[in-house]
C-alpha cells in the first residue's frame, strides 16, 4: 500500500469524491461518548501496563525555532533511556523534529530502533507552493526520516477545494517513498466535527498512513472528542477498504491519566490491533516525564517529585 497502488481522486466513486457525504457528527453525542471513556477506572497492574504502553507510544517532540543540535541530542538520549533507575522500561516510539534536525537525530539514535519523524510541508502553516512542500518532504526523507508529519492546506479545505487537498496529500505520499506519512488535519482550525470527519476521510483516501490531530501550535490541539471522531473514521475506512490507518493525537496531552483515557478509547473503538506504537502514537513533549513519575509511584507506592526526573 505504497505509492504504486495509490488511489487517485478520479478513481474514486462519487460518494468519496465529493466527501460532502462523510457521515454527520453530533457534537453533544461525541462529547458524551468521549466522557464515558474517562469513567473507566485503571488500577494496579492495568495502570502499570497501560503506562508502559503509553511511554512506548510517545513521539517525543521538539518543534521550536530555537532547536539546536544539542537540544535534539539530549532529547534522543532521553528517548532511549527514559529513566535508567527503573530497568526494563520501554523506549518511546519516535522522536519528532524539524527536517533540519533529522540527520542529528539519526546519528544520536543509532540502531536503538526508535523512529525518526520529521514534520514537513511548510509546517505548521502549510502555506507554501506544492513543489516547495514536496522538496521539503523529500529532503526530510533523504536525511533519514522514517516518518513524515505533513499538514493539510486548511485554507483550501475551508474553501471547499477538497480535490486540491486530496491531490496534495497524494503527491506528498508519493514523495515519502518508504517513509510513513502522518497527515495533520490541524483540527483546531477546522471548526466542526463534521469537517474533522471529512478531512479524515480525504486524508485516508489520499494515502495517509496515519491521521494526526494537530501541530501543537494551535489551541485547541488534541482532545478526546476530536480523537474519537478520527478513530471512528479510521474504523469505517478499515471496514470499507481493509486498510489499517494509524492515529496520532498531538498537543495538549501532558498527564498520564489523560493518556490512559486515550488508551481506553483506542481499546474500545478499534481494539487490540491498534494498541501498539505501530498504529497509535501520542505527539507530546512533557507527557513522558509524567508517565515516568506515575510508573515510579506504582512501583514505590510513594508520590513522586519532578525533581527526580530529567528535564530535557
Amino acid at each position: 500500500m505504497v505509492s504504486g497502488s495509490l488511489t487517485m481522486l478520479s478513481d474514486l466513486p462519487d460518494r468519496q469524491a465529493g466527501f460532502s457525504l462523510s457521515p454527520r457528527i453530533d457534537q453533544v453525542g461525541v462529547e458524551e461518548r468521549a466522557s464515558r471513556f474517562t469513567k473507566r477506572s485503571i488500577k494496579k497492574e492495568s495502570k502499570l501496563n497501560g503506562l508502559k504502553l503509553v511511554l512506548n507510544m510517545i513521539d517525543l517532540t521538539t518543534l521550536e525555532g530555537k532547536d539546536t543540535a544539542g537540544k535534539v541530542k539530549q532529547l534522543c538520549y532521553k528517548a532511549m533511556h527514559p529513566h535508567d533507575s527503573y530497568p526494563g522500561l520501554p523506549t518511546v516510539a519516535a522522536i519528532c523534529v524539524y527536517p533540519s534536525m533529522v540527520k542529528v537525530a539519526k546519528k544520536a539514535l543509532g540502531d536503538s530502533g526508535i523512529k525518526i519523524a520529521s514534520v514537513a510541508t511548510a509546517f505548521p502553516g502549510g502555506q507554501a507552493p506544492k513543489d516547495v512542500k514536496i522538496r521539503d518532504t523529500k529532503y526530510a526523507v533523504h536525511e533519514g526520516a522514517d516518518e513524515v508529519d505533513m499538514v493539510i492546506s486548511r485554507g483550501k479545505f475551508h474553501a471547499g477545494e477538497y480535490n486540491f487537498v486530496f491531490d496534495e496529500i497524494a503527491a506528498i505520499k508519493e514523495a515519502c517513498g518508504e517513509a510513513r506519512l502522518k497527515v495533520i488535519l490541524e483540527t483546531g482550525e477546522l471548526g466542526t466535527f463534521d469537517k474533522v470527519r471529512r478531512a479524515s476521510d480525504i486524508a485516508m483516501h489520499a494515502g495517509a498512513d496515519f491521521i494526526k490531530t494537530s501541530t501543537g501550535k494551535i489551541a485547541p490541539a488534541a482532545t478526546m472528542p476530536v480523537t474519537l471522531v478520527m478513530l471512528e473514521a479510521i474504523r469505517d475506512f478499515y471496514y470499507k477498504t481493509g486498510r489499517m490507518i494509524g492515529m496520532k493525537p498531538a498537543g495538549g496531552i501532558s498527564k498520564s491519566k489523560l493518556a490512559l483515557h486515550y488508551l481506553v478509547m483506542v481499546k474500545e473503538v478499534l481494539g487490540e490491533d491498534w494498541l501498539n506504537n505501530h498504529w497509535f502514537r501520542f505527539g507530546a513533549s512533557s507527557l513522558a516525564n509524567d508517565v515516568l513519575m506515575q510508573i515510579m509511584k506504582e512501583k514505590t507506592g510513594v508520590y513522586q517529585s519532578a525533581n527526580y526526573f530529567s528535564v530535557d
Binding site: D26, Q27, V28, G29, E31, T187, G188, L190, G191, T192, F193, V196, A219, P220, T223, P225, V226
Partner: peptide
C-alpha cells in the same frame, strides 16, 4: 434535542 456547544466549555470544535 442536543444543542451543539462549539464555542463554550473551552472547546474549539
Amino acid at each position: 434535542h442536543p444543542v451543539e456547544n462549539i464555542a463554550g466549555a473551552g472547546g474549539g470544535y
